[in-house]
């Protein structure tokens, strides 16, 4: 009796450690993303290389967490909600790593833009705004994961559309710029890539939110926007 209780306690600790590790990784990526968006505004070479270095650390941590997950699955054979947690977490890790990739991409674009010596960057305010929204979404989804708060996760899923709309608006405006003055084309294209990376961050945050809902409720809400809205209508 005492030993089985001991084992289950150890198991809980293992699970909690994995979750903690993922959230720590999330914190690292969060900082990296915010720094990356800053580089778009400042072009600080120092910050750019820091963002790129962080990407390597993020990759190492991803591998560590994957190892830890494999260990838990192999040794404890989790079931039910524990299994869902492990499955969800392993997907969240992938999304976080991709966000790290996108942050690196943004920093590299900043290096290119400022390396070209372009002083005024068209639509930089909008990119910053959209970057702010994306990093906020990431922060909130990590909070939702720490608190297992599905209500917040659902809100984040709904608000991802805002970031998508912002991206399309930036794109439209940049196209106007490029048509007016072809000299801005290369810079504008770099900004499009950066804005696209930001938009992708929003998508990854949404994926994480979906995993949070799966972990808590056991329902898969991926690719079910229409049906989700009808059930919400039924409830009302």
């Amino acid at each position: 009796m005492a030993t089985s209780e001991h084992i289950s306690k150890q198991f809980d600790a293992d699970l909690e450690n994995v979750r903690s590790q993922v959230l720590q990784m999330g914190g690292l990526v969060e900082g990296q993303l915010m720094a990356a968006i800053d580089t778009l505004m400042t072009g600080s070479e120092d910050l750019i290389s820091r963002v790129i270095d962080t990407e390597r650390r993020v990759n190492t941590i991803e591998k560590e967490i994957d190892d830890a997950i494999t260990h838990v699955v192999a040794r404890r054979q989790p079931a039910a909600s524990d299994l869902r947690l492990i499955m969800g977490v392993s997907k969240i890790v992938t999304d976080l790593e991709r966000i790290g990739d996108e942050a690196e991409k943004i920093a590299r674009m900043a290096r290119q833009i400022y390396g070209r010596g372009a002083l005024s960057i068209p639509r930089s305010v909008d990119v910053r705004q959209s970057g702010h929204h994306a990093s906020q979404a990431l922060r909130r989804v990590l909070d939702a994961m720490a608190r297992l708060d599905t209500g917040e996760a659902e809100k984040i899923i709904a608000e991802d559309k805002l970031i998508d709309t912002e991206f399309r608006a930036i794109l439209r405006q940049l196209i106007t710029y490029m048509m007016e003055d072809p000299r801005t084309i290369s810079t504008a294209l770099d900004i499009v890539w950066a804005a696209k990376a930001i938009e992708r961050v929003g998508d990854h945050a949404k994926n994480i939110a979906e995993q949070v809902i799966y972990v808590v409720n056991g329902t898969d809400v991926r690719h079910t926007r229409a049906s989700a809205s009808t059930t919400a209508g039924d409830n009302a």
Partner: peptide
């Protein structure tokens, strides 16, 4: 209240 019992590092995610 709501966050009692959670690890602090899960909410304050500074490396």
């Amino acid at each position: 209240g709501g966050d009692y019992g959670l690890r602090l590092t899960n909410i304050v995610r500074v490396p």
